[in-house]
Amino acid sequence: MNMLLIYAHPNHQSLSYAFMQQVLRGGGENPGVKEVRVLDLYEEGFDPVLVFNEDKRRRDMHIDPELSRHRELLMWADKIVLIYPIWWGRPPAMMLGFVDRMFASKFAYLDKGGLMPEGLMKGKSVVCISVMKGPTGYLRLVMGNAHQVLMRRALFGYVGIKKVKFFEFGGMESPKGKHAQKLDKVYKYFRAVAQ
Results as ranks from 00 to 15, higher is better:
Phe156Asp: 03
Arg37Pro: 00
Gly26Ala: 07
Lys185Val: 04
Gly45His: 14
Lys124Phe: 09
Phe52Glu: 07
Gly45Trp: 13
Met95Phe: 15
Arg90Glu: 09
Asn53Gly: 06
Leu150Pro: 01
Leu4Cys: 06
Trp87Asp: 00
Leu183Phe: 06
Gly160Cys: 11
Leu15Thr: 12
Val51Phe: 04
Ala108Cys: 06
Ile86Lys: 05
Ala180Tyr: 15
Lys185Phe: 10
Leu110Val: 01
Tyr187Gln: 11
Lys112Thr: 14
Leu15Trp: 09
Glu29Gly: 06
Pro117Asp: 13
Gly28Ser: 10
Val51Leu: 13
Ala180Glu: 15
Ala8Asn: 00
Lys188Phe: 10
Glu54Ile: 05
Lys79Thr: 12
Arg37Met: 02
Arg37Gly: 01
Gly97Trp: 04
Trp87Glu: 01
Pro175Tyr: 10
Ile6Ala: 01
Tyr158Thr: 08
Ala8Phe: 09
Leu67Val: 11
Leu183Tyr: 02
Pro91Met: 14
Arg58Met: 11
Leu155Gln: 11
Phe107Gln: 00
Phe103Trp: 11
Leu15Gly: 00
Cys128Phe: 13
Pro65Ala: 03
Gly32Glu: 10
Ala146His: 09
Val131Arg: 00
Phe46Trp: 08
Leu15Ala: 03
Tyr158Cys: 09
Met61Leu: 13
Gly113Trp: 10
Val127Ile: 13
Arg25Ile: 07
Gln13Glu: 11
Val186Glu: 01
Glu72Gly: 05
